[in-house]
């Protein structure tokens, strides 16, 4: 019987999961769409992971969660570790690339930059104010241009003269893109221009003032887009590494953290069959109107959060 550790990264757009063994090797993984329902996405994910490790004699002893729904899923899976995605990504990446100095990460709704020195995070920045230049922006623009987002990168590479696109803001980028298309610019040039715009926006925004030093690893869903990777390499003037598992790095990192935590808890894949419910409500006890979230397993309250003061505290009776 080997020990296994699950890492789950529940992002706004996609849900990622891995099972690693004691040597940090990924034995199972999956990547699927969150579709606005993290609970269901995780159930689907766990089913898939269970299928992949079936018959391999692995016992899951710890779970780690990260991503924007980390708290909710952490409660549901009784996770040993609930960690923010910045640390999770840093841990995952430095495990695979110990010498890395800079991590570029562009996900569905946010983008971040992590600066690492001698294996330690020394600086980071995260863009949460606006979605310009993130995955959701690219996929909506791909849709507008009538190409699938998966082909976006390869089409971009065929361009010889990328069109200039104003990408400071999603709304302006969109109108500029329509304008350039109506002017007669070729589709591949516009697509390459968009990739370039994403990179310019990223470097001017989250990357502003940061010491960007090679080796650089680029990850997150958008790293699968070779057009953006190429645009990054042109902009920073050195090679940018994209790992085949780059999209799983957050999940991988948090699985390692779960392993390192040493907290082992019984985990049963059966939770996919259990009924989890969440109930959100506004606390009426003062004018703060905190949004309180309660999580129920089979109609029994297992966790709640969101209150700013004791008036809104809901105690779990065990």
């Amino acid at each position: 019987m080997k020990k296994g550790y699950i890492g789950i990264d529940i992002g706004s757009i996609s849900t990622k999961g891995v099972v690693v063994d004691e040597k940090n090797t990924i034995i199972a993984s999956d990547y699927l769409w969150t579709e606005g329902d993290p609970m269901n996405a995780v159930k689907r994910l766990l089913k898939s992971l269970e299928k992949q490790i079936k018959g391999k004699d692995i016992k899951v002893v710890a779970v780690g969660t990260t991503g924007s729904a980390r708290k909710l899923i952490g409660a549901v899976t009784n996770a040993s570790v609930v960690k923010n995605e910045i640390t999770a990504h840093a841990i995952g990446t430095t495990t695979l690339y110990p010498g890395v100095n800079t991590i570029f990460e562009i996900g569905g709704q946010d983008s971040k930059i992590i600066i690492i020195e001698n294996g330690y995070v020394v600086d980071y920045a995260m863009n949460t104010l606006c979605a310009a230049g993130t995955g959701s922006f690219l996929s909506s623009q791909a849709h507008r241009l009538g190409v699938s987002v998966e082909d976006f990168g390869s089409i971009a590479l065929t361009s010889k003269q990328p069109t200039n696109i104003a990408a400071r803001c999603t709304v302006f980028a969109e109108s500029d893109l329509v304008h350039k298309a109506q002017m007669g610019h070729k589709k591949e040039d516009i697509i390459a221009g968009l990739c370039k715009a994403v990179v310019t926006n990223y470097l001017n925004n989250v990357g502003k003032g940061k010491r960007i030093k090679a080796p650089i690893v680029f990850q997150g869903g958008v790293s699968k887009n070779i057009g953006v990777k190429k645009a990054f390499e042109d902009a920073v003037g050195c090679e940018v590494t994209v790992d085949a598992n780059g999209h799983l790095m957050g999940a991988f990192g948090v699985a390692i953290l779960a392993k390192k935590s040493g907290i082992e808890r019984d985990f049963d894949f059966n939770i996919t069959a259990l009924d989890f419910k969440t109930k959100g409500f506004e606390c009426p006890k003062c004018a703060n109107h905190c949004e309180i979230m309660c999580v129920y397993r089979d109609n029994k309250l297992i966790d709640s959060w969101g209150n700013k003061c004791d008036n809104g505290a809901i105690r779990v009776n065990n």
Binding site: N84, E85, I86, D110, V121, V122, M126, T128
Partner: peptide, 17 residues
Amino acid sequence: TGIKTRLEAFYDMVIAR
């Protein structure tokens, strides 16, 4: 959520340093 995430990462960073 964005504030929490960055604060937690800040804590991880300073404690690791």
